[in-house]
Design a protein around this nucleic acid. Structure first.
Lengths: 225, 225
DNA sequence: TATGCTTATATCGTATACGATATAACCACA
DNA sequence: TGTGGTTATATCGTATACGATATAAGCATA
């Protein structure tokens, strides 16, 4: 009795493979357009095809993978169109959701958000860029308070994951880290103070800033796909 | 040469089962909270568990089903919270997406939208309420022009499907059909004319009208879950 | 009679096996 | 040399089989 979640967090092979393949796609280890042959992946991971298929189908639902019946899975390609959609959707949803999160958050959620912010900034300071994407997503999500906006958080989590690939690929070298840090701090402060209007505005500005960086790069070197 | 999509539209058992189970959930044939035992479904459909599992996992990604590892799948329950989220998300996304669709639509897409509107209204006139939900969703989606807003359309399609259950359950008897018809006509006219501002405003008003009907019912009889 | 443990059972999750599909290689023919 | 049709091969999608997990039933004990 007492603690409640002694059960392993990931109880199925499918779920573990989903996380693993997702991270490889987001990190670029599996390049856009690359084929994902079930048998090969199964052999590599030392499992059968079935959990591999389930993982790939999940990632397809998340928009990271394409399927063509009887022809297999492949990493979804990057396109400027998709990038625009991702950021348009984020701008339409995220600021409102974060403002709402600021109202809904209790003591516990505030602590979680603060912790997420610390982890993210520590990673950035230590130059662990590989972790930064996920931690950035976790911070943004924490502001939404997933427990109290389940569906919204689910949708946004997917968008944040999709966004990562574009940010990683195009905005890695640009020294955005310090600006992002300032934006995060301001956003977090307003959110913590329960200033929903300010939180919404700052979230919007923060997303838009990244979006505009991206557009600038697109303009610079033509196609992405 | 010539026609291109001779291949059957649904080439796998999983995809067929996904559509079948989805429609049963949306229609209420599988009630909220009901267990979905893999072996029983497989036996009923005359297939093995594997395509059944894949279908259920897909529906989980769509938000219609819950999974608990080693304890099975069940139809997701209805909650007022979720209903609010669905409509908040739709209001945040759909009007913009439809306005954008009005710009993007070519000759072909305009014809599709008109056809979708006709089909919907014919179904309503003939009292085929069972089909109305899907056809309504198809009409709304057509205005978005899925081919040119792939991700947005995917997100909205899910929200429209989720919304159906609430509308079906709570707003079936209320004589909304004729009002919806008028709203659809006005929206379609503005959209066809390329009047993006009007289309956006009318879409917003149309969604909000349904939302408010729903809220009114919620107020009337307490809980939904 | 209530409580904690052990055992039994049902269902799940995954490995193995196999038929089905799509592409590629090959060959006949123009 | 290029084109249409055929066969071969690789990979996919699903059926079958089985070990693993969670709940329920049964039993001993307090």
């Amino acid at each position: 009795m007492g603690s409640e979640a002694i059960r392993p967090l990931v109880r199925t092979m499918s779920a573990q493979l989903t996380a693993l393949v997702r991270s490889r796609i987001v990190s670029g280890a599996y390049a856009p357009g690359a084929a994902l042959p079930q048998d090969a992946l199964a052999a590599e991971f030392g499992v059968s095809k079935i959990p591999v298929r389930e993982a790939l189908l999940q990632l397809r639902a998340e928009g990271l993978v394409d399927v063509f019946a009887h022809r297999g899975f492949q990493v979804r390609s990057l396109t400027q169109d998709e990038a625009h959609e991702i950021f348009r959707l984020r701008l339409a949803l995220e600021p409102q959701a974060i403002a709402r999160g600021a109202q809904l958050a209790g003591q516990l959620e505030r602590q979680s958000a603060a912790a997420a912010a610390r982890e993210l900034h520590r990673a950035l300071k230590e130059g662990r860029l590989a972790d930064a994407g996920d931690l950035n997503g976790a911070f943004h999500l924490a502001l939404v308070v997933p427990a109290r906006q389940r569906l919204t958080a689910e949708v946004l989590q997917r968008l944040l994951t999709l966004a990562q690939r574009y940010v990683r690929l195009h905005l890695q070298p640009t020294g955005r880290a310090s600006r992002a840090r300032r934006e995060h701090e301001a956003l977090r402060a307003a959110w913590m103070a329960g200033d929903t209007a300010a939180a919404e505005a700052l979230a919007s500005a923060h997303i838009r800033a990244t979006y505009e960086d991206l557009i600038r790069v697109f303009g610079a070197h033509g196609e992405t796909a």
